[in-house]
Amino acid sequence: MTEPTKNIQAAAPRIGVFVCHCGANIGKVVDVAAVAEAAGKMEGVVVAADIGYACSEPGQQEIKDYIAEHNLDRVVIGSCSPRLHEPTFRQMLISSGLNPYLLEMANLREQCSWVHMNDSEGATQKAMDLVRMAVSRASLLYALEEEILPLVKRTLVIGGGVAGIQAALDLADNGYEVVLVERKPSIGGTMAQLDKTFPTMDCSI
């Protein structure tokens, strides 16, 4: 890990901004091209473009080409929630030779186009702000290295019904130690109480 205080004052950042249409999901409400254009004028942004589906293979390739062509060192993606595709785009950065923590996402779908469907102008304004905030944050990002930690190869299964038993067996058959905890005096759960079960009408135990 690099000392952050030093890194913040590193050379001028080279940021690329990519605004995703997500088909019509974002594009129908937000003026994506206008957002990309506005992003192009923001401080530190070297290149900005709109993309049909940023997460798709061709979409990612397009971004990777921009990264290579413009020698980008940080990437801002305006698309869906980072809770969905942050891992995807981090992986993309890694394959472009960038540290995955030099990515910032602006949530233009779950928190913009989908919740302001009847307010195109407001949504576009918001999208521009969200991208501006992301760019500003991105210029201060610095590389981080993941740490490798040891792991205990055992699993605790809480509940000894049909689900707990199946999970325990699958894990154990894969070579893992399992601790199966059941509150009652026997495992089996509700399943054990059932007679024939649908759809095959055979016995449950």
Binding site: V152, R154, L156, V157, I158, G159, A167, L171, V179
Partner: peptide
Amino acid sequence: EKVGSIVVATG
């Protein structure tokens, strides 16, 4: 017990 993962199957 020390474990690395947990499956919640509380029914």
